[in-house]
């Protein structure tokens, strides 16, 4: 990419083209057997694709911390869950109108990020990872204990359907939820791109590369890191809101340590510190997680011995093992691997 004009075209044109194609999908009646359940614009596929897009947005939000600033946080699920639960709870328990509820969810998540980030950033490196994990665990405990019947405990909290516009409710309206998810990913994508190219984004990159040096150069690294946590959590909270709208409620699985770890897996699978990497990682992770369950049940593995089949029918086993392989052989993730292949073919 030596000449700037085609490169710029590629950088702006390709995402726009992809966005146009994705936005048009609800009008495509074709079916892709094996890849998607039923027709592309059928409710099953739409719902699956919408959830995949929401996960792509989750991965984008986590990448602000991990890939861009080098913060290994195991507490990011806390903010996603906060966005989701604050929305559902303020809609049903506090009967707020939808716009106010969304503002409350986003504001609450941002405040939470300031407090938790402010405390956790007092330690660095691995200790930071452990402390954020502990905070996320505290949230998980609160949600499961169901204080005052507010969070619904293990059942989760259903979205108050009367408080939501009718086009977001019901099976036949899956395309609208899909567009909502697409809009969320687009917003997150643009925001992260803008952030990365701003002064603050450069400061984050400096902290990631060498925190000591960034401090010597006069950056208040604490503030830079806190900013990364707040921005990432804001996007995560927004994702939580969209997740609740798309899936019709909040589920305690959003608060689990497993979900927090899966965010890390998504980002690393796709390629940490790359916008496309995060999008791809989040999308593929959820897609694989959802589809592998069906592959396990469909009898693909029937020829294998019982024990092996039982293990392989667990999507997390395959994803976890694949993740280890990626960490070893493709440390820059799938996008890094793709980029390397393109450069190789271009050179030869």
């Amino acid at each position: 990419m030596t000449r700037p004009t085609p490169a710029t075209l590629l950088r702006v044109g390709l995402p726009l083209l992809l966005l146009a194609v994705l936005a048009y999908l609800p009008y495509v009646p074709a079916s892709i057997p094996g890849l998607l359940p039923g027709r592309i614009n059928g409710p099953g596929s739409m719902q699956l694709l919408a959830t995949c897009l929401v996960f792509a947005g989750f991965a984008l939000s986590y990448d602000v911390l991990f890939g861009r600033t080098g913060l290994l946080s195991f507490g990011h699920a806390l903010f996603v869950a906060a966005g989701s639960y604050l929305l559902t709870v303020s809609l049903s328990t506090w009967s707020l109108p939808l716009p106010v509820a969304i503002l409350a969810a986003l504001g609450g998540t941002t405040m939470l990020a300031l407090v938790v980030g402010g405390v956790a950033l007092r330690v660095g490196g691995i200790a930071f990872a452990m402390v954020t994990l502990a905070f996320a665990q505290a949230a998980s405990i609160i949600v499961l204990r169901d204080p005052g019947g507010v969070t619904g405990g293990e059942e989760g909290k259903a979205l108050n359907r009367d408080a939501v516009p009718s086009i977001l409710v019901g099976v036949q309206n899956a395309p609208y939820r899909y567009w909502l998810a697409l809009a969320f990913v687009t917003v997150a994508f643009v925001l992260v791109r803008l952030l990365v190219r701003s002064r603050a984004g450069h400061a984050m990159a400096a902290v990631r590369e060498n925190e000591g040096r960034a401090a010597v150069l006069g950056l208040t690294t604490y503030r830079v890191k806190l900013l990364a946590i707040v921005v990432g959590s804001f996007l995560g909270g927004l994702g939580g809101v969209v997740h609740a709208l798309v899936l019709g409620g909040s589920s305690p699985s959003l608060t689990s340590a497993e979900f927090t770890l899966s965010l890390l897996v998504m980002v690393v699978l796709g390629g940490a510190g790359s916008t496309w990497g995060a999008v791809l990682g989040g999308f593929l992770y959820h897609y694989a997680d959802a589809r592998l369950v069906e592959a396990g049940g469909s009898g693909v593995f029937d020829v294998l011995p019982d024990t092996l089949r039982a293990v392989l029918s667990q999507p997390l086993f395959i994803l976890g093992a694949f993740f280890v392989v990626v960490v070893y052989f493709a440390p820059s993730g799938l996008t890094g691997l793709g980029g390397r292949l393109i450069r190789k073919t271009g050179a030869s």
Binding site: L264, V265, V268, Q314, G320, F323, V324, V327
Partner: peptide, 14 residues
Amino acid sequence: VLVTVGLSLAAVAA
């Protein structure tokens, strides 16, 4: 850390 994370996910699933 990443490798042990992947291992823990896979082991629990197994």
